[in-house]
Design a protein around this nucleic acid. Sequence first.
RNA 1: GGGAGCAUAGCUCAGUUGGUUCAGAGCAUCUGCCUUACAAGCAGAGGGUCCGCGGUUCGAGCCCGUGUGCUCCCACCA
Length: 886
Amino acid sequence: MELSKNYIPQDVENKWNTAWKAGGYFKSKPDDRPPYTVVIPPPNVTGVLHMGHTLNETVQDILVRRARMKGFNACWVPGSDHASIATEAKVVAMLKEKGIDKNTLTREAFLEYAFEWKEKYGGIIYHQIEKLGCSVDWDRVTFTMDKDYYGAVIKVFTDLYQKGLIYRGARMINWDPSAKTALSDEEVEYKDGEGTLYHIRYAITDADGNPLQSPVTGENGIIIATQRPETIMGDTAICVNPNDERYAYLKGAFAEIPLINRRIPIIFDDYVDMAFGTGALKVTPAHDINDYNLGLKHNLEIVDTLNEDGTLSEAATIYIGEDRFAARKKIIAELREKGLIVKEETYATRLGYSQRTGAVVEPRISTQWFLKMKELAEPALKAVLDGDITIHPGDRFLATYKYWLENVKDWCISRQLWWGQQIPAWYDSKGNCVVAENEEAARTLYQQQYGSDAVLTQDEDVLDTWFSSWLWPMEVFKGISNPGNADINYYYPTSVLVTGQDIIFFWVARMIMAGLEYNKEKPIVEAIPFRDVYFTGMVRDKLGRKMSKQLGNSPDLLQLIDEYGADAVRFGIMISSPAGNDLLFDTASLEQGRFFNNKMWNALKLVKMWEQKLSVDLPEQDPFATEWFASRLNEVKQQVDKLISEFRLSEALKVIYSLIWDDFCSWYLEWVKPDYEQPVAAAVFYKTINFFSELLQMLHPFMPFITEEINNILGNQNPLCVKTLPVEGAVDGARLAEGELLKQAVTALRDAKARNQLKPKQEITVFLQTENGRVYEKIIPVLARQANATAIELVSEPVADCLNIVLGKDRLYVQAETPVDTAAQKEQLEKDLVYQKGFLSSVEKKLGNERFVQNAKPEVVAMERKKKADAEAKIKAIEETLAQLV
RNA sequence: GGGAGCAUAGCUCAGUUGGUUCAGAGCAUCUGCCUUACAAGCAGAGGGUCCGCGGUUCGAGCCCGUGUGCUCCCACCA
């Protein structure tokens, strides 16, 4: 078989995706093995995978593949989220482009368009997940609007309603005027901005309508400060602090709203900060949460001057139908013109934006459905504080999680949208309401409650997307729609949840709540939805900026896979991904992944060449090399095991990368490599194949395609993805130490050549003066070949006219035909001598310190004594060498 | 306003109960090599006041205090 010059990922990746699928290796059914369950955080059905997904999916795949290879029954469930508001916004936009206004459509017609859209674009993410090499069980694909899933959401709503945890009522909520729906608190993102604070004069009259002047300043009227002049028409009071002497004269007085001249009362409340602004506050209960509360307290009228789309309503009486921001400009202009604005100042403010549509959110009073959170939050907090669920990295997120749950407010779960689970509440013409899982049940219930039949109409609204995704770890196994089935019993709780830290409240906390609420009868460790939560950081560009469409710094995943190969993409994103920290994405790291592919590919080519020239009779030339590598391999296996169990995947990958590139390719293969066109000992060859196979297996979870391919070409019949990881073997510390000595000796000789203008291939003779000859004996054959030495002889006396190298306590003399540059050598040795002397003196100082010798642990003191002896020996070796270099 | 995290080489980061030559890795840089697996490579090298200050200790990159500078989360002062 002819191997290509370089590794070409495209064909290989498609080939193995097909083979894996055909083999059904990633399908999972309950059996006797312990389960390892992961549910994918469902991406938006009509979205595409961005780099954040790529990171999450890769992390999950690494964990799942490794678990599978460790003998677990690994099950990774793929799926997608209907993403109610995001998808609906896209469909509305699509319809608009076609010239269709959503408002002209019936609910049914709209949903037909939406499902069509979902069918058309919903496959994209699945395709991307597959291209990336994710070992998911495609038989288990779940969509949050699947029939069963839909039913489960309705069932949970009904259940929570019956438990009294869900209620309906008019409250101040966050309103998205673009999507024309209510939002939860979590869906509002606050951004700092610069606003203007307008100081506006309101006229003051007494109860009879006569103008009042301030006895203090003699001024007419009262000045209030606001950032939102367009809401003045909604004012229903002016509020001042009762202790504010400036305004004491306003008892029983009235203010007049400018432009519309409506009379509103002056109220007194110490909520008002006398020092802020003018100390007078306009109260607009319909459009500000604080004003709303103040209004409740003082029993104020509520005048809602905005329509649902953010235009001014009839209640505003002026600028009706104008957008709020346009109206603001006009109102400011009119106020200015009338001389009612006495001051304008820029003001640092924070505005709330809708997470999905980007529209500026309006606080609005509206009748919505809410879920009481306090009862649900308590056990969810306890599970994490008690350590039943572990968050990684914990230090950073525990406090955040705790704070949120301790201060959680009721969750507004209704949305004025069509794409989603329609709220199972039915009303009669008077507004009486029954909640049931379907219309028939509702009818029965209605009859029971009201003793008569009536025309019932279902609530128009749908549920927040997160009200369905919080059931994800249960309902992907039909744990809600069909409780107690074999799958849910076997796979739940899931093993680990891998997700972005940005959805800790939206999703993670709520899943824990739902899991605990619907598994109350079970012990806590079986009720939780997952045992570990692994938060990945945010993916940013290499300048540290968030990835966004506007900046154009968000690369297309499929394009990256085309360019670099899926393995290189996975490598690149993992190698630069320290646990939990933000990741600065740079294609340079993908390139590194591609280079790594080629490195392994070339190693493959080398050993395949050996296969042509096997010699069964040839004895193993250097058993040291294979012994050393076996130990090294086992050492790294232990390290990798530990790192992965701590979710330090990036470090695990680095360790494996270095093992393959440095230890295996740069050292081991060179040590066992036969001379040009010479045969290789069969024993060495087969050992090498085994080493290589084990390396591939270790790397496979990170880079599944190339490892599978090379494993196959090496002659391993069974697919790597389901090959059980071998039991770890022994680590021989002595071998490892010898290996290190060998590396150092080789490097020292090469360095000496380089410094003395000797060609690397230049043949040399080496004389070695050491008290440690027995250790060297083993490595001398390899050392000789690696350094191109015709001979390495042990000597007890210095050899003249040689390059002098001091390696620890040992001295090497290199004899070559080229004359020796003593000056350069001297310089090098003297530099080393200075360092060693400095080191020695610091050790001596330590040992001379009585308190150190008394207080430090005996082994530490012993170590210092050894350091001292070693340093002295080294200094002696250097000084002797220098003395000889006259 | 409350809380959390971070600061180590040019860049991105390790450094796991304070003690091996602990000051590290990768990338980048520099030097020399087209050496029959690999120039997408090989061999070698240089590079840091571990943010400042103070403290604890025989000993601090690591612990404590403080200052500075970043980052994030939460919060109803118009």
